[in-house]
Nucleic acid binder design. Sequence first.
DNA 1: CCCCTTCCTG
DNA 2: CAGGAAGGGG
Length: 638
Amino acid sequence: MNLSLSDQNVHNSSESCLEDDKPDVMLPCFRRSMYDEPLASYSNGSIISQLLRKTIHNKRALDESHFYLSSSTAADSGQEDQSSVSSKDSTVEAASPSGHISTGASPEGEHPMADHLQAKRARVENIIRVMAGSPNGRQHGDSERSDTDARDTREAREAYRENKRKQRLPQHQEHSAAGQGSRKPGSSDNCNTKDEECHKLKEQLHSMQRLLRQLQEKFLQVYNQEDTECDNRDEVETGTENDILGESTESRESQNLQETLKHELSRAVNDCVDRVFKKVSPTGLDLSPQQRMCSSPEMQMNMGADRKSQQASSALEPQAEEAVVKPRSLEYYDSSEAQSPQDQTEALALVVRKPAVTPLSSVTPTVKRPYPVHQAPFQFNYSTPLHDSHILEHLLKYGPHSNFGGLPCMPPSMDRTSPDSVDLPWDTIAMRSKVTSSHLGHHPRPSSLGGVTVDNLCLPHVKIECGELQSMAERNPYMSLNIQEGLTPSHLKKAKLMFFYTRYPSSNVLKTFFPDVKFNRCITSQLIKWFSNFREFYYIQMEKFARQAIVDGISDVKDITVSRDSELFRALNMHYNKANDFHVPDRFLEVAEITLHEFYNAISAAKDSDPSWKKAIYKVICKLDSDVPEEFKTSSYL
DNA sequence: CCCCTTCCTG
DNA sequence: CAGGAAGGGG
C-alpha cells in the first residue's frame, strides 16, 4: 500500500494517469464494477488520479449533456449512454468508445488550458451524471464472476466475495427463510405492499434525481470558483517538490474539487438515503446517515484509516435507484489489508459444522428490490437489519453475540435457490474445528452502546477465513444470524483473550461466554482443549523464564517481576493477543508474576525433581482466576 | 462411566 | 492447535 505518496509516487501516478487513459484499459474498468478498479489501478496511482481517470472516461461515455433519466437519449450517443448507464453488456462497452477516447484523455496531460478546463468541467458533470445514473451500469460488472479475473490477489477476491455477500444481507432478510427467489421477493402474499413500496421508491428516486440535478448546478458553481482560484494559485505556488508544474497544479485542483465533490455528494446522498429510509423503516430505530453509510466497523475503521478513499468511494458510488444498500468498493479492503497484511498467511483448515438455521425470515428490511439482488447498487449493509425487531429480539435473547461475530455480516448466498441450503439440521456433523492462529485483526476494544453496538451486529473486519465456513455461508443466506455450530477463528481469539482473565474456565463459563455457539460434547471439549493448550503454553513460558531467572543469578524472588515490558509478558501477549489490540488486564500481570514466583521457588527448592511438582503450582494458579468481563459476552471482542 | 486435566506427539 | 493416552475425581 502506498501509505505515503512520495514525490516520485505522485509523479508516477500522474504518468500512469496518462497511460491509463488508453481506452482499452480504462473503459472496461470504469464501467465495470467499482470493485474491479481499486486493485487494478490503485497500485500505480493515487486515489485522486483514480478518480480523475474515472471521471474523464465517464465523460466519454456521457458526453452528450443530458440526463438519461430526464430526457430521451440522443440517437448517436444512445449506445454509449446505455452502456454506461444500464450496462447491458460489458464487452460491448469495452469496445465501443475506444475510438474517441484520445480526444479528452491525452490532451488532459499534454495540452494546456482549453482542453484542460473542459476536461475538468466534464469531470464534474460526469460525476453528477454517474450519480444520477442507473445502478445497473455498475452493478452489472459486479454480478459477473469473470470480474474476479481482474483481481490477482487472493485478498482481493475474498474481499470481493465478502463484499458481495454483505451486499446481499439486507434484502435476503427481507423475507422468510422459506427461501425467496433470487430476485425480487415478490411472493403473492404481500403484493399490495410491494406495489406501494415500489411506488414510494419511485418517488424517492425522482426526488433524488431532482436533488442530484441541483447538485450538478451547485458543483458547477463551486467548480468555477475553484477553477479561478486554482489558476491564481498556480501562479504563486511554483517551486513545489513536484517536477511537473502542470501536473502538480492539476493535482491540487483535483483535490480541491474532489473534496468539494465528495463532501457535497455524500451529503446529498445521505439526504436521499434518509428520505428513503424514513419510508422503509417503520421501526423507530433511527440511525444517522453516517451510521448507515458506514455502519460496519470496517467502514468506520476506514473512515479513520483511509478517509479519503472512503469518501471518494462513497461520493462516486451513490446511485439513485435505491438508496438502501451502498456498495463498498475494494478500497475498503485495500486499506484493511494494509492494516492486517498477515491475513490469510496461514491456511485455516477450519471444519465447521453445518450452519444452524433459525428462521429469521422476518429479519428483513421492507425494501423491495426492483432488480436482482446481486445488482444491489447500494451497500447499505447492517443498518437495515437493525431496523428489524427480530434482530433486537435475537440480541436480547442471545446477547449481541457472535451470531454476528462468528460470521460477521454473513450475507445471504447467491444460490439461495438451492433448497437444501436453507434447512440444514442443527446437529449435523460435530467435527473438530481446526482453527489455526487467527489473524483476526479486529479491535476488541469494547465499544458498547447500550449493549448493542454496530460491532455486535457485524464484524466485517473479521474475515471469513475458512473456505468451509465461507462456502457454507454462501449456501446459507441466514447463517449470519444463527447460532454457530462450530467454533470459528473469532471464537478462538475470544477464548484467548478470555484467558487473560480465567485460566481454568468451567464449562458453564464457557457456555455463558460463547452463547452463539451451539454446545455439544465436541464443542465443549474443544473449547476446554483450547484452554488446556493455553495453559500449557502459559506454564511452559513460566517455567522457562523461571529457570532463566535462576540461571541469571537472581537470588531473590522479589527481584522477579512481570511488567508489560517483560519478555515474558511479550511472549504471552504475542500468543494470546497477537494483534495486540486488546488491553491486557493488570490482574493478569499479577497472576503471571505469582506464577513465575511459584515456578522460581519450586525450581529453586529443587522440587522439580518430583515428577508432579507442577501440580502444586497449578493448584495455586487455578485459584487466581477472575471473572471475565461481561463485555466478552458480546462479540465486540471478536 | 463421564468429565476434566495433564502429558506427549504431530 | 488437535489427537490421543493416562490418570484423578464424582
